[in-house]
């Protein structure tokens, strides 16, 4: 399960960022922010090769000693990042993919809300609930 889940706008500012409360939130902010480097690198690399049939899942962005950071980018260039504890080896690529897909679906619902202003921070309870379901359940 994830320890941190974040969504960024096209312009790379955070729309949503939530991490497990037991760990240093700031550290995750730094980690996730830095991961944008790789996200952008991958997006531009993908853009060069195949135009339309683009894979939204960007895969493992980069591993650190403690965490693995996975990325996903929607067609509207909204990015999702899931940070997983390195020691958590039971998670397979497919599970990460499905987590992203769930996240994307929930995000689409948020966007469909007529009262949501695209670009605003996400405060949807439903979205929050989905994220909570993916996060590590601690105590």
């Amino acid at each position: 399960m994830a320890v941190c889940i974040a969504a960024f706008a096209k312009e790379n500012y955070p729309l949503y960022i939530r991490s497990v409360p037991t760990q240093n939130e700031l550290k995750f902010h730094y980690t996730v922010h830095t991961s944008l480097d790789v996200v952008e690198e991958k997006i531009s690399a993908v853009g060069k090769s195949l135009g339309d049939q683009r894979e939204l899942y960007l895969g493992l962005l980069y591993p650190t000693e403690d965490y693995k950071v996975y990325g996903y980018v929607t067609n509207s260039k909204v990015k999702f990042v899931i940070v997983v504890d390195s020691s958590n080896t039971s998670l397979r690529d497919n599970e990460i993919r499905s987590m992203f897909r769930k996240l994307h679906n929930s995000f689409t619902d948020v966007m469909c809300n007529p009262f949501y202003n695209p670009g605003d921070p996400i405060q949807s309870k439903a979205f929050n609930g989905i994220v909570s379901g993916m996060m590590v359940q601690t105590g």
Binding site: Y13, P14, L26, H33, L36
Partner: peptide
């Protein structure tokens, strides 16, 4: 960079 991308927590730190 934090300002330009609107990252408040790292910004504050």
């Amino acid at each position: 960079s934090y300002v330009s991308e609107g990252w408040s927590l790292p910004l504050t730190h």
